[in-house]
Amino acid sequence: MFVSAETFAVVLSAVGIVLSLGTAMLAGFAWCVRRIDAVETKLTTRIDTVETKLTTRIDTVDTKLTARIDAVETKLTNRIDAVETNLTACIDAVAEDVTELTVSVARIEGPARHLFVPGH
């Protein structure tokens, strides 16, 4: 079979164009993948650094807040205990006064004293 030189040149140039375009596209895709990997590595490092800083900061704030809450709790507990002691003392004093008042009222309202014996 006989192929003309022009046909052979056209087929050969078409194959060359397809190979050139394919190689260029493959190189471009490889460059994009390499670039994405570099950006991903950079972002991962940056995110890890920020995460470490935030974790440290949150732990510090948590420690400070825990200490402050414990101090407030202790202070309130002491104040509540003092108020409870005072109220208990006041209630006991009132109870004693009420008992004495009840006895006094009972003496006043008790049976009438007979100084004179009624005559027959």
Results as ranks from 00 to 15, higher is better:
residue 52 T to G: 02
residue 100 E to Q: 11
residue 46 R to C: 05
residue 83 V to C: 02
residue 36 I to M: 09
residue 41 T to C: 04
residue 89 A to M: 05
residue 8 F to W: 04
residue 91 I to P: 01
residue 25 M to W: 10
residue 77 T to C: 04
residue 59 D to A: 07
residue 82 A to R: 06
residue 89 A to N: 12
residue 34 R to T: 11
residue 65 L to D: 00
residue 70 D to I: 00
residue 110 G to M: 01
residue 36 I to A: 12
residue 78 N to P: 01
residue 109 E to A: 02
residue 53 K to C: 02
residue 117 V to H: 06
residue 93 A to Q: 13
residue 23 T to G: 14
residue 35 R to L: 01
residue 45 T to E: 08
residue 113 R to L: 07
residue 110 G to K: 06
residue 98 V to D: 12
residue 106 A to P: 08
residue 92 D to Q: 07
residue 51 E to M: 06
residue 89 A to S: 13
residue 95 A to I: 02
residue 86 N to F: 05
residue 85 T to D: 02
residue 28 G to T: 10
residue 95 A to L: 04
residue 25 M to G: 08
residue 22 G to W: 08
residue 99 T to P: 00
residue 86 N to W: 02
residue 14 A to N: 10
residue 105 V to W: 02
residue 60 T to K: 12
residue 62 D to I: 08
residue 6 E to G: 01
residue 1 M to I: 03
residue 118 P to I: 11
residue 40 E to F: 07
residue 71 A to F: 05
residue 18 V to L: 12
residue 68 R to Q: 15
residue 23 T to A: 14
residue 118 P to Q: 06
residue 39 V to P: 00
residue 2 F to M: 03
residue 50 V to R: 04
residue 88 T to H: 04
residue 12 L to S: 11
residue 65 L to H: 04
residue 81 D to A: 10
residue 87 L to K: 13
residue 107 R to I: 11
residue 108 I to K: 15
residue 86 N to Y: 04
residue 45 T to M: 10
residue 29 F to N: 08
residue 61 V to F: 07
residue 48 D to T: 11
residue 2 F to T: 04
residue 60 T to R: 11
residue 54 L to V: 05
residue 55 T to Q: 05
residue 120 H to P: 00
residue 74 T to N: 12
residue 75 K to D: 15
residue 61 V to Q: 06
residue 102 T to Y: 04
residue 117 V to D: 03
residue 108 I to Q: 11
residue 94 V to D: 07
residue 11 V to K: 15
residue 42 K to I: 01
residue 92 D to A: 13
residue 63 T to H: 06
residue 75 K to P: 00
residue 34 R to N: 15
residue 31 W to A: 09
residue 35 R to Q: 04
residue 91 I to M: 07
residue 98 V to I: 14
residue 32 C to D: 06
residue 50 V to E: 15
residue 111 P to F: 06
residue 60 T to E: 11
residue 38 A to R: 15
residue 34 R to D: 14
residue 25 M to D: 10
residue 78 N to T: 13
residue 54 L to A: 03
residue 109 E to R: 05
residue 97 D to E: 14
residue 91 I to S: 11
residue 109 E to W: 01
residue 86 N to M: 09
residue 25 M to E: 14
residue 81 D to T: 10
residue 44 T to L: 13
residue 29 F to S: 07
residue 104 S to L: 12
residue 44 T to P: 00
residue 113 R to F: 01
residue 37 D to P: 02
residue 15 V to K: 13
residue 87 L to F: 07
residue 14 A to I: 05
residue 3 V to A: 03
residue 80 I to K: 14
residue 45 T to S: 12
residue 72 V to C: 08
residue 102 T to A: 14
residue 47 I to N: 03
residue 72 V to E: 15
residue 115 L to A: 10
residue 50 V to F: 08
residue 106 A to L: 08
residue 87 L to Q: 11
residue 1 M to T: 05
residue 48 D to E: 11
residue 16 G to L: 06
residue 81 D to H: 02
residue 10 V to S: 06
residue 35 R to F: 03
